[in-house]
Design a protein around this nucleic acid. Structure first.
Lengths: 346, 346
DNA sequence: ATCAAGAATGAACACGCTTTCATTTTTGTC
DNA sequence: GACAAAAATGAAAGCGTGTTCATTCTTGAT
C-alpha cells in the first residue's frame, strides 16, 4: 500500500532526469532521439541516469506534440480464426520491431461495424489502420480517420471498389486468386471430378464472392459444369452441416471446393465420420488459405495457399512506406496464390 | 493529395467545437464527461456540433492530464495458439465494452522477455497489463511497470511464488487443476489404463510443471504407477514425434495425458495415421484446455476444460476492480477445472 | 420577495514532451 | 591563430485535453 504509493510517485519524468544529470530537459529529449545533435558523452550520461530512474518517455505526451502515436490500429472480427490470428501475430511482430504497437479492435462477427467503435478508435489517433474489406468499406473508414491512412486487403478484382472509393486515398494489398484456383480445378479435372460443389464463406465477404466468381469462370473456361453453391460462413460447424445436407437432401458431389480451410475440415469430417464416405476416393476436397492445421495428419488438406510471409512482408512494406511518406501516391502490392497438393485430392 | 492535406487539417479540436457552438472549451470537455454538470440543452447542442465536425476527444491529451490511458497491455508469445487467441479475443471484447483498448505485445516464443519490450510498453502507460507467469515473472514486471497492475494466470500452488513476489502487488487468477485431472485419472483407471504417459508442454511453463505434479500426485493417491514423462513444447509436431518415439523406441503406453489439446491432436494423429493404433481402443488420450477444435469429429477429444467464459469474466472483474480502485488490496480469483468426456477414452 | 444552497460557467493552470529559434561552443580550413 | 561553418545548447512556445477555483446563475423553501 505504501509500496504502491511509492511506486506511483516513482514514475520518472524528463525533468527529473534532467535535474539528476545536471542538464536541461531539452537535452534529455534529444538523448532519446538518435538524430538530434548532442555530445555523445552527454547522451551517455543522460541515458545512464534515465536507466537508473527507470525513465521512459511518455508516448502520449510525445504523440501530442509530434502528431504520431506510434500505434497501428487493427480491425478484426475474430481473433480466434487461424487466418486472422496469423495476420495479427506476424504484423505485431514486424511492427513492434519498427517501434509501433498494435491496437486491437474487435468488430461484431457479422462484420457489421459499430460507428461508435470508429469514433473510439479515432480518439487513439492511430498512425495507420489495417482493415479488411470484409469488415468495413473504404469510404466509411476514410471518412472517419483523418491522419491515419487505412490499408486494405482486397481480392483480385478491384473494379467494384474503384467507384466507391474514388477520391479517397488508401493503400491496397491485392490477392490474385486465379492462379491457385486454376491449378486446383486442373487437378480435380485430372482426377475425373465432374460435379463440383463450392462451400461458401460469409455472404457479405468479398473474398468469398471473388472466389466463387473465379471458380465459376475457371470451370466455364474448361468446359465444366457450373458448381453447386452451398451457403456457409467460414465456420467448421456450418460447413459440416452443409455437407450433410448436400449428400442427404441434395444430389451430392464428387468434389468440394471450400472457401477456407476450416470449412474444408468440416466438410471432410462430415464425409468421413457421418456419411461414411472416403476422402479422396469418394469425394475430393480442396481448401483455401493453407493455415497451419492443414498439414495435420487427420486432414492433410490440399489447399490454395496465400503465402503468409509474403503477405505480411507486403503489408509491413505498405504501412512503413505510408508512415514515412504520408503524402506519397497510393500503392498497391499484389500477391499470387498457388496450390499446395496434399492428400485430399487423388 | 490536396484531398489529403484537407483531411489532415480536418482533425477537429475542442476549441473549434467550442467556437462553432458558441460555448467555452471547458463546456465541450464537460459535454463528453457524463458526470460533469452542464445544462442538458447545451450538452446536446455541443454534441451535435461535435458530430458535424467529426470531433473526438484526443485520448493522448486526455491521458496526459487524467493519468489514465484507457489502454490495457497484453503480453503474449503466440497469438495463433487457440488458447491464447481465445483469451485475447474475449478480453478485447469485454474491455472494449468498458472503454478500454487492447495494446498487443509479442514476446519471443521461448518465453524470454526482452527488457526493451517492457520499456517500450511502459511508454504507452497502460492502465493495466495482463501477463502469464509463463512469459515473465511477477517481480520483473512489477519492477518495470508503476501505475499499471499486472494480472497473472498461475496454477494451483502459489507457494512457489510467495517468496519471489513478496512485497509486490499484483492480482491473480488461480486455476485449480486438481479436479479435472482427478476426474480424468478416475476415468482412465475405470477403463483399465495402467501405463500412463504424460506428454508435457514447454519446460519453462509453470502450468506444465503444475499439471505434471498434479498428475503424479493423483496417480500415487490411487495406487497407480508414476507416469512416463515425455518432453514437449505444446506444439502439434513435437507431440507427434514424441508419440512415435514412445511407441517405436520406448515401451509404449495404454493412455496418453497431454499437457494441452493441440499436443493431444498430435498424439492422436501419430497413433492413428502412422502407428496404426486405434484411439481409444488401443490407446486412450486426454487433453487439457478444451479449445474449440477439440469437438471436431476427427479428434472428438476427451479433455480437461478450463471454462473460457468463467476465465474471462474473472479476468475482466479483476482488471476493472483494479482500474477503479488502484489502491485496493490484491485480489485472487479461483477457477475450477472439470473433465469433458468425448470419444478418446472408452 | 428574500435568501441560502446548489448548479452552471469560464479563466487559468497543469500534464510531459518535442520543436523552433536565437545563442554559444566546437570544428575544420587557410 | 583567425575566421567561417557546423555542432551543441537551453529558453520558451506550444500540442489538446481535464481539473481546480472563484464567480455567476437557478432553484426552492420561507
Amino acid at each position: 500500500m505504501n509500496d504502491r504509493a511509492d511506486k506511483k510517485a516513482a514514475r520518472a519524468t524528463a525533468d527529473q532526469v534532467a535535474r539528476e544529470a545536471n542538464v536541461s530537459r531539452v537535452a534529455v529529449s534529444r538523448a532519446f532521439n538518435p538524430n538530434a545533435s548532442l555530445k555523445p558523452e552527454k547522451r551517455d550520461r543522460i541515458l545512464k541516469v534515465a536507466r537508473e530512474l527507470n525513465y521512459t518517455p511518455d508516448m502520449a505526451a510525445r504523440s501530442l506534440v509530434t502528431g504520431r502515436s506510434h500505434l497501428v490500429g487493427m480491425i478484426v472480427p475474430d481473433v480466434c480464426s487461424p487466418w486472422e490470428s496469423q495476420e495479427i501475430d506476424a504484423l505485431t511482430t514486424a511492427l513492434q520491431a519498427e517501434g509501433f504497437a498494435t491496437l486491437l479492435f474487435k468488430v461484431k462477427a457479422d462484420f457489421s461495424m459499430d460507428p461508435r467503435l470508429l469514433t473510439y478508435m479515432r480518439g487513439f489517433n492511430p498512425d495507420s489502420v489495417i482493415a479488411f474489406t470484409e469488415n468495413i468499406l473504404p469510404d466509411v473508414l476514410c471518412g472517419f480517420l483523418d491522419r491515419a491512412v487505412p490499408i486494405y486487403v482486397i481480392y483480385d478484382d478491384v473494379a467494384q471498389f474503384a467507384g466507391a472509393a474514388s477520391g479517397t486515398l488508401y493503400d491496397r494489398l491485392l490477392v490474385r486468386q486465379k492462379n491457385g484456383i486454376e491449378q486446383a480445378v486442373a487437378l480435380l479435372q485430372g482426377y475425373g471430378a465432374r460435379r463440383i460443389a463450392y462451400l461458401g464463406g460469409k455472404a457479405q465477404s468479398l473474398a468469398n464472392a471473388e472466389r466463387e466468381r473465379t471458380l465459376k469462370e475457371t470451370l466455364a473456361e474448361r468446359g465444366m459444369d457450373a458448381p453447386i453453391v452451398l451457403p456457409g460462413d467460414y465456420t467448421y460447424d456450418t460447413a459440416y452441416q452443409a455437407t450433410l445436407d448436400l449428400f442427404r437432401i441434395g444430389e451430392g458431389a464428387d468434389a468440394i471446393f471450400a472457401a477456407n480451410d476450416v470449412g474444408a475440415f468440416g466438410a471432410i469430417d462430415a464425409l468421413r465420420h457421418e456419411l461414411g464416405l472416403s476422402v479422396p476416393d469418394d469425394v475430393k476436397v480442396v481448401g483455401f488459405d493453407d493455415i497451419p492445421q492443414s498439414h495435420w495428419k487427420s486432414y492433410n488438406l490440399t489447399t490454395v495457399r496465400i503465402d503468409l510471409e509474403e503477405r505480411v512482408r507486403a503489408l509491413v512494406r505498405l504501412i512503413l512506406m505510408r508512415l514515412r511518406a504520408p503524402d506519397a501516391e497510393p500503392l498497391t502490392e499484389t500477391l499470387n496464390t498457388r496450390l499446395i497438393v496434399r492428400g485430399t485430392v487423388g
